[in-house]
């Protein structure tokens, strides 16, 4: 069974975000980048599907600047078997531009399944997965917490409000990973050594037959990025007298929030 996994390289979730001088982007200086957490679930699942089916490739794809190679190296060390780097400043493209690049890249690789994270941590769009599915003309199952693949068909649990749907679809299909799908493995020393021997394929947007003007067309353009106003940190009271504290909370909920 062959899978493609789209992984994005994002600022570590612990990072302090600083705004770049242009007022529209994150200042990348000094930021540590990681594989986006949901993409780790996506990658792990693809590796498990491969292991269960007894073979095939797990190809990881990223669209990003030079630094994004680190994400591919990390994925190879964990068990991906091939890697494709589409070079370009993905942060200058909107989600549909990114999806077009990924869909074109996916078409160059044999696959039965396409995995993405349910959302890229940081930009928090949760858009690229269904867009890729539409561009490829594949069925999609979004926000998946459990997956079984057999006989050209997959069964997936999809998380919805307060419940879970169990859906079935023939492959090829697009699956976006939610936390709970699996526990991602760490890279082993052996994996890290083996990964070093794998060459990362690189392509440009033009190599994929796409026009920069369509990919970087900014149907959605960021005009400003701002830090939230410092919260003044509200009122703090001593709760040593539990009954008095409870009354104060109730009063706050009634008077300020107009609830109850």
């Amino acid at each position: 069974m062959n899978s493609v996994v789209c992984i994005s390289h994002v600022p570590d979730t612990e990072s302090r975000i600083k705004i770049a001088a242009d007022g529209r982007k994150v200042d990348e200086a000094g930021l540590k980048f990681i594989v986006s957490p949901y993409d780790e679930f996506a990658l792990e699942e693809a590796i498990r599907v491969k292991e269960k089916s007894g073979g095939g490739d797990v190809t990881v794809v990223t669209f990003g600047p030079d630094r994004a190679q680190q994400a591919l190296r990390e994925a190879l060390a964990r068990g991906a078997t091939k890697a494709l780097h589409v070079k370009g400043e993905a942060s200058d493209a909107d989600s549909l531009g990114i999806a077009k690049v990924l869909a074109a890249a996916i078409k160059t690789v044999p696959h039965d399944l396409v995995f993405l994270g349910k959302q890229g941590v940081g930009t928090d769009n949760a858009l690229v997965g269904p867009m890729v599915a539409e561009l490829l003309g594949y069925p999609q199952v979004n926000v998946v917490t459990k997956l079984e693949v057999a006989d050209g068909k997959l069964t997936a649990h999809r998380e919805i409000e307060g419940a879970e749907e169990i859906l079935e679809t023939p492959t090829p299909a697009v699956v976006t990973a939610q936390k709970g799908l699996n526990e991602p493995r760490y890279a082993s020393l052996k994996g890290i050594m083996a990964a070093k021997k794998i060459a990362i394929d690189t392509k440009s947007v033009a190599d994929l037959g796409l026009n920069d003007s369509d990919i970087f067309n900014q149907r959605v353009a960021t005009v400003a990025l701002e830090l939230p106003a410092e919260k003044s940190g509200g009122k703090k009271i001593d709760g040593a007298d539990a009954a008095a504290a409870a009354r104060a909370i109730l009063q706050y909920i009634k008077d300020e929030a107009k609830a109850l």
Partner: peptide
């Protein structure tokens, strides 16, 4: 839209 887990806000224009 809130981004970076609410650590920043992006203003975007959709054309």
């Amino acid at each position: 839209r809130p981004v970076y887990s609410g650590k920043a806000f992006a203003t975007v224009e959709v054309s």
